[in-house]
């Protein structure tokens, strides 16, 4: 029997981002990945930037002046924001993925109540903590720059 042509319907990256009508955990999933990639990119750049010190003091001081530009300060603030979300959401994921906050198996009775409902208070608590950490850090960051 000849092989029929098929259409590859895999969503790819659009599967992360697209869809619509998703729940808040889905958006946390997307943001966790994006912030994780952002923090990783920052670490790689950080290693490159600090390794310039090995090439001599003149390059190092010149680079310091260059990195004082406002655009890099905004970049640092974005890294801090990403860290605030990633760290607190990461704590939630560790607890959830170790089975602590998803509940025990139950008889499914309509309307169904899933583990998403069970872990929702933890999710909201972690987001509040992330927001408090972000607010305090933001004040310190911009206030420190103004001084």
């Amino acid at each position: 029997m000849p092989e029929l042509k098929r259409h590859d319907n895999r969503l790819g990256i659009w599967g992360w981002l697209g869809g619509g009508r998703w729940g808040m955990e889905r958006y946390a999933y997307i943001l966790h990945r994006v912030t994780g990639l952002g923090i990783l990119a920052y670490f790689l750049m950080h290693i490159c930037v600090t390794s310039l010190r090995a090439w001599g003091i003149y390059l190092w001081t010149g680079e310091g002046a260059f990195l004082d530009a406002p655009v890099f300060k905004v970049g640092e603030f974005l890294v801090f924001s990403a860290f605030a979300f990633h760290a607190f959401n990461g704590v939630r994921l560790i607890l959830v993925e170790l089975g602590f906050a998803v509940g025990k198996p139950i008889e499914p009775v309509y309307p169904y109540k899933s583990s998403l409902h069970v872990q929702r208070p933890l999710f909201l608590a972690m987001m509040v903590l992330a927001a408090v950490f972000f607010a305090a850090g933001s004040y310190e960051f911009w206030h420190g720059l103004a001084r």
Binding site: W22, G23, E25, Y29, E97, S114, S115, L116
Partner: peptide
């Protein structure tokens, strides 16, 4: 799996 939760939803 990183608990997007869509499967359960």
């Amino acid at each position: 799996c990183h608990y997007a939760g869509e499967c359960s939803r």
